[in-house]
Design a protein around this nucleic acid. Structure first.
Lengths: 196, 196
DNA sequence: GACGATACGGACCCCGGGTCCGTATCGCAA
DNA sequence: TTGCGATACGGACCCGGGGTCCGTATCGTC
């Protein structure tokens, strides 16, 4: 009903813009360095096209992000353990967080751009609620944790793009190093087997 | 040497601007809603004055923040326990985090403005390094914690202004509620006495 | 009260996000 | 193949906000 098939040039241009934006964001220091006009030029289209296709800057970045995120979402929704459903919480939670961290490491520029694009926080616009709900549900099944919701917020906060950027970028921390430290921290929150 | 005493009207205007900016930020929904011109007008000065006194927008917000933060800094640097030095880590760390949380609750607008003002993250511009170093040093004396630095980052991330805003503002979470949940989370990270 | 130093203020500039509309392209149908 | 509505294109244009500049007013000192 509300479906109208788009014209060919429209989809081609859309793809070109996405492509150009991705490489531009990847190449530059900060997301603020590249303007809409830059993207349009790099994609070989006019600004109008760009805004018609994505609405506004945030829309573009969201679309880009969404594209990259799809595989991970699928893996979480219906993939095999330890990411997929059916895995016991004590094993799934660390896996989820590690996956999120890796995603942000692999897409630093994107995640950064997204957080800085949403008017203010990443908490309103986006996928955040989905991740939080997922984590919360798992955490609530962990014995001893009285508030899964807050723990979920806190753990996700530990994987925020700008923190990752700070540690991995500025501070030269290794990918594996970061993963290990997050894993250790997570284990501690989960109440690792330690007694006394 | 490099010290020259400023003129009276200069200090008066500086104070007026700070005052005006504070009330404006407090009154509006988001920091982005108020412009430099607004602040200048509210303070009854010209834009030039405002920029001469603070350099740029970030400078203004930083100055404001610094003012409000001073008492807390003093309490931490040379106040009585549990905030002051000499307190055992297991008691000081929760106290520090609670203090930070309370500060952000009491100055939501400011903290928010600051995080969004610094070009990108709060990790480059500001006091962050001081807080992190302080926390790290304490955490490294907690038995069982293998990486105090990461833990410090993670715990501070749990008190980030936009998260606080999301929980306390949007989600209507109570001040005491939030404090309790952060305290509980902190305790868990510290390895609370629980045995299996 | 007079004069150099300092600060004031707001008109002005620049840049970037977002819009508009005349023109080009698409795709369907005859 | 041609004709014609619907759809998309592009870049000139607008606007709002951060930051600057300099002629004028104020300060404070001699």
């Amino acid at each position: 009903m509300t479906e109208r098939k788009p014209r060919k040039d429209a989809v081609r241009n859309r793809a070109a813009v996405l492509e150009a934006a991705d490489t531009l964001f990847a190449r530059c220091a900060g997301p603020a360095d590249i303007t809409m006009a830059d993207i349009a030029a790099a994609a070989g289209v006019g600004k109008g096209t760009l805004f018609r296709a994505f609405g506004d800057r945030t829309g573009l970045i969201r679309a880009l992000h969404e594209t990259r995120l799809a595989p991970l979402r699928d893996a979480v929704a219906q993939g095999p353990p330890p990411l997929g459903p059916g895995t016991p919480p004590l094993r799934r939670v660390p896996a989820l967080l590690d996956a999120v961290l890796c995603f942000k490491l692999d897409n630093r520029h994107l995640a950064l751009a997204l957080e800085e694009a949403g008017s203010g926080s990443p908490y309103e616009a986006g996928h955040y609620d989905r991740w939080h709900a997922l984590l919360r549900d798992e955490l609530e099944r962990v014995p001893g944790l009285t508030d899964g919701s807050f723990a979920a917020h806190a753990l996700l906060a530990a994987t925020r793009a700008d923190l990752v950027e700070h540690l991995a970028g500025r501070q030269g921390m290794t990918r594996e190093d970061l993963r290990a430290r997050l894993a250790e921290f997570t284990a501690r929150v989960l109440g690792d087997g330690r007694r006394s």
